[in-house]
């Protein structure tokens, strides 16, 4: 029933109904923001990417094919925008500020939350050292927990390519986490 309703909203949006598209934005902007934040590490750029992604989605709604999930299409746009932004020199300069901005924006009171936030920031920083494709695969599969098929669709890669990138990404992240726990002596967290 919910699926039918969603299809109805998409159909109305394709016909140019702004209110229907607003519902699509409300439903999907949180996920789109979360993905772009994990890629870029700062709120300002992430909001810009989300905004641009929805504008592109609106402009291309007429080309939407029901056999592809709308969310898959949206995430593909978000990921491509993020990867393009990461390639730019501006973003390479911003990488350094990520952890500081994350710490400032996520100040919490309890010790557990502090540790969780610190680890979250560390994972974001560590993921910056992965190649763009490894980073994309790691974020979508391990952090966002999307199915293998959907990740392959979003990134337009084969399952073999995904596994290969995922293996190297997990290996590198594992090495980084090992170092993190050795230097900060937080083995109790695991």
């Amino acid at each position: 029933m919910a699926e039918q309703e969603a299809q109805e909203i998409i159909k109305k949006a394709i016909e140019g109904d702004m209110d229907a598209f607003r519902l699509i934005v409300l439903k999907n902007q949180a996920f789109a923001y979360s993905v772009s934040y994990r890629f870029l590490g700062n709120a300002e750029d992430s909001e810009d990417v989300v905004q641009e992604a929805f504008i592109r989605l609106w402009k291309n709604m007429a080309r939407y094919k029901p056999e592809i999930k709308l969310t898959t299409w949206l995430y593909r746009i978000v990921v491509n925008l993020c990867l393009d932004l990461l390639k730019s020199t501006y973003q390479r300069q911003r990488k350094i500020q990520v952890s500081e901005e994350y710490a400032a924006n996520n100040s919490v009171s309890s010790d557990a939350s502090v540790l969780a936030n610190e680890l979250n920031g560390f994972i974001l920083m560590a993921a910056n050292d992965l190649t763009p494709k490894q980073k994309a695969v790691f974020i979508l599969r391990d952090l966002e927990d999307l199915p293998v098929e959907e990740v392959c669709d979003i990134l337009s890669i084969s399952a073999g390519n995904l596994k290969s990138n995922l293996y190297y990404a997990r290996q590198r992240m594992s090495a980084k986490l090992k170092m993190y726990y050795q230097t900060t002596d937080k083995i109790t967290m695991i």
Partner: peptide
């Protein structure tokens, strides 16, 4: 860590 999503302010 992944299950705690980043939310828009």
């Amino acid at each position: 860590i992944g299950s705690s999503k980043f939310s828009v302010k």
